[in-house]
């Protein structure tokens, strides 16, 4: 074994996490519908991933960071805010980009929204998403099915 091949593993992971971080912050902004909140959670996830780097078993560092970020978003945020808050004004960046889709996404349950983003935008499979959330693949299939059905109704599906 080449010694030089052993030492840089930790720094490679850090590089992968830095590269994956903006994607996590952006996806959380779509899921949580609040870019500032999303950035806070992405920062916390990044810090936690670095703390726990010795627990990374190789593979997809981005999926690992997303897993930490999603769990922080859905476990800790729930405790942080005892009542469900929705922004008073929809963000300009969303309304100037895809207002209909943004509004339709807002009608989905947050976990459905997250699963949809990970599946449609990133191509993660039901099984991969189920591991991120710590639920059964069937649960994710159900979330995705409901989310897509809802969007079809709200946005119209010309192909049907």
């Amino acid at each position: 074994m080449d010694l030089a091949g052993v030492v840089p593993l930790a720094t490679d992971l850090e590089g992968d996490l830095v590269a994956a971080y903006p994607g996590l912050a952006r996806r959380l902004a779509l899921v949580l519908r609040d870019a500032a909140d999303a950035e806070d959670i992405a920062q916390a996830a990044f810090a936690r991933a670095l703390e726990q780097r010795n627990r990374f078993h190789g593979g997809d560092a981005r999926a690992w960071l997303y897993t930490i970020g999603l769990r922080l978003a859905f476990n800790e945020r729930r405790r942080r805010r005892p009542i469900t808050l929705a922004p008073t004004d929809e963000p300009v960046w969303a309304m100037s980009s895809e207002p209909d889709l943004w509004d339709a996404l807002g009608t989905l349950e947050p976990r459905q929204r997250a699963a949809l983003v990970l599946n449609v935008l990133d191509g993660y499979t039901h099984e991969e998403i189920s591991r991120m959330f710590g639920v059964r693949p069937g649960t994710v299939s159900s979330w995705l099915s409901r989310a897509k059905d809802r969007l079809r109704v709200l946005l119209g599906d010309e192909s049907k």
Binding site: V18, A25, R27, A29, L30, A35, W93, E98
Partner: peptide, 15 residues
Amino acid sequence: GLQRLEAAVPEPKPP
């Protein structure tokens, strides 16, 4: 649509 929305999210600060 999601790609356009994602691209519109304000640039996050570096970690």
